[in-house]
């Protein structure tokens, strides 16, 4: 039963974070929100008894891809801000 509540919490978190991804004005914020989605998803996967996938999601989805996206945004943002001035 408790598992069901955890799962529900995860789903709600994912939905909220997903909407945040779209509504964030700053890209870096959107990336943070996206990584929250991933973290919630990996918890959900643990609840669903798929630890392998959960581990992959945590390492790749929440960790790596967020870092990569953040690095990319930083790089592109630097170029853009220069063009603005």
């Amino acid at each position: 039963m408790i598992m069901a509540w955890v799962a529900l919490a995860c789903v709600v978190t994912m939905l909220v974070a997903g909407v945040l991804v779209l509504t964030q004005r700053k890209l870096i914020g959107a990336i943070a929100a996206a990584s929250v989605v991933s973290v919630a998803l990996s918890v959900l996967l643990v609840v669903l008894r798929a630890p392998d996938v959960a581990l992959a999601e945590a390492a790749v989805g929440a960790g790596l891809s967020s870092v990569l996206l953040a690095l990319a945004v930083r790089r592109v943002g630097a170029v853009d801000s220069k063009e603005d001035t």
Binding site: D52, L55, A59, G63, L64, V67
Partner: peptide, 17 residues
């Protein structure tokens, strides 16, 4: 146990980054 090359590789990458 759960885990494997992809996950562990990602952790290794983080370790060096």
């Amino acid at each position: 146990t759960p885990g494997g090359g992809f996950q562990g590789g990602a952790i290794l990458a983080a370790a060096f980054f």
